[in-house]
Design a binder for these strands. Structure first.
Lengths: 335, 335
DNA sequence: CTGAAAGCGCTTACAG
DNA sequence: CTGAAAGCGCTTACAG
């Protein structure tokens, strides 16, 4: 079913002026073209009467840009990223940009595919939460001089703008909260991921405990995203069986937290009496528990806002050097 | 920063053939054009070497379609809709379509704006979860013969395809579950929304209770989306204060459930000992509670799949009559 | 088997 | 103050 489209030409004919005049008026450039007021008003009226909608393809083809940014998320079902998507859309709109949201499920191959789809759709820039195995694709993309901002994660070897949280600092504080609350045998459940954002979380945790002489490497459990439920279940059981004295756990991501707490509760572990828990990122489900679970609160709104700002700067200017921004997270919901 | 674009022409020059030949090869139409194999291979190789990416604007302008569908959601932060977005994207991809996801926050004005944005981006069709006050905008849009599928909600007066759940039936069953579990004084917390999907939920609940002679209109509390937290808090307090015998509550939507349960727990109400609860839609947070909460499980994946299928049919064919599809939800997680 | 050419709907430098 | 015309990059009917 093809809808009958009204073009600039139709308006021009109806009003009895040229395409150029209509285009000028419709784009609010009456002054530049010094169009007479009466003409401008007639054009506007005709556009309304005919129910004119501009054709973005023609415009984009001519102008060479789309006023669209491509957002590549690693896991849209994760509420942390869902929130990011929401805010990025809000801020992009302020600049007159739309956002095409795509999802990779932490797969590099899927990321490559999404990059292609978005490129062919002529997005003016990318905001990417890259996957662990996606460095080459991001690098390839950046070689084409496309504006890119990496969000939440980054590749240390690529000179590409990125907005991240100081993960080391956040984890360091989270670990200290456990220690200060009396935990002598804290465990960590974290992704087996070589990207610095995850490495930093592990390092922050490790160094905090080491400083207080209570770091035990056996209590750090690495899990994979692709087998998250089973891996966490195993990790927790190992932690409890091998080390019956475990009295604290730091869950190093949003999805790990949700699944981790679920398993603890299922096993009848009392939080915080038996085991104290600190999480990375907030989750709505925390409201369902009759006790407070402290968490690392990332400045999601600020991060989203900045990523749009930095991207816009890159899109507008011809030559920008990469902008790196590190934000600080703070502990929240401390009992 | 404008990236240097490679066009079909560049390939044509490099290989020494015409634009037409390149285009034919690139679109896999060698046979139609009966291009020689050697030429085709050369073209393909050159495209690779030059890192060619097709320009969707030019293609869309010429072809008159975008291979993109616009998805208008009422509340992207609601996991029910977030899931729908995920599945629709997956299924659309199978047809070679991309999805632009937008959000209205239950505002009709915002919906109007999103329709305009998506139209100007030449989407080939719309999948819309409409807002209560959005009937006129949807009606206006449908007059332009644009393919539309309404999802989850619909307007009874508009002859537009829609995929919904049989809400009456689902609520009827949910109410009966409360009754069968021994509830004599059930309450309902539901949106004050005149759209049939919500009306049906109320009606199903009401009629189930009426049949068993235990319907008490005072125990039905209407709340608004815009003031959801406060309204639910008030509704629950009223329910408990005015009717100390309340022994069951049906929360008629996903977001109502989450907030409602949170408030019940905060007030120290024991579920299900003091009050039994049934919810519309599943929520991850349910996993955090050491008891089972039954819920109406909508076939999200099927609904998403069907909405894409129906939309594709409308896009492909010139004249289709509206398709209405009602699916059945079932009660899940019954203790 | 392949090329030349028109045209999709815009915007903009240029001419008047 | 306004119009005629070129051109963005593609696809396709037509001619050869």
């Amino acid at each position: 079913m093809k809808s009958t489209r009204v073009s600039i030409k139709d308006i021009a004919i109806k009003v009895g002026v040229s395409n150029a005049t209509v285009s000028l008026v419709l784009n609010g450039k009456e002054k530049e073209g010094r169009i007479r007021k009466e003409v401008a008003e007639k054009v506007l009226q005709a556009a309304k009467d005919l129910n004119y909608e501009p054709n973005n393809f023609a415009r984009g083809l001519r102008m060479g840009h789309s006023n669209t940014i491509g957002l590549i998320l690693a896991d849209i079902s994760n509420s942390f990223f869902a929130n990011i998507a929401f805010y990025i859309q809000e801020y992009a709109e302020e600049y007159g940009y739309s956002v095409i949201i795509t999802n990779t499920n932490e797969s590099g191959k899927k990321m490559e595919k999404m990059i292609h789809i978005l490129k062919s759709r002529q997005v003016d820039g990318f905001i990417i939460v890259p996957t662990e195995d996606g460095e080459d694709y991001v690098n390839e993309l950046s070689k084409t001089k496309t504006p890119i901002v990496l969000l939440d994660r980054y590749f240390p070897n690529l000179p590409i703008s990125h907005i991240v949280v100081n993960n080391y600092h956040a984890s360091f504080n989270a670990a200290n909260l456990l220690i200060d609350s009396g935990c002598k045998n804290s465990g960590l459940i974290i992704y087996n991921n070589k990207l610095p954002h995850m490495q930093d979380r592990e390092k922050g945790y490790m160094e905090a405990l080491t400083k207080k002489n209570c770091y035990n490497p056996a209590l750090t459990k690495k899990i994979t995203y692709s087998n998250i439920e089973q891996d966490i279940s195993n990790a927790i059981e190992e932690l409890l069986k091998e080390n019956p004295k475990v009295d604290g756990i730091f869950f190093a991501s949003n999805s790990i937290s949700v699944i981790g707490i679920k398993h603890l509760l299922k096993l009848g572990v009392r939080i915080p009496e038996d085991i104290q828990v600190v999480c990375f990122d907030k989750n709505d489900a925390f409201d369902f528990i009759p006790f407070r679970i402290p968490y690392v609160q990332q400045p999601i709104q600020e991060m989203s806002k900045k990523s749009v700002e930095v991207l816009m700067e890159q899109i507008k200017k011809t030559n920008t050097i990469p902008t790196t921004m590190e934000m600080f997270a703070r502990l929240s919901n401390i009992p």
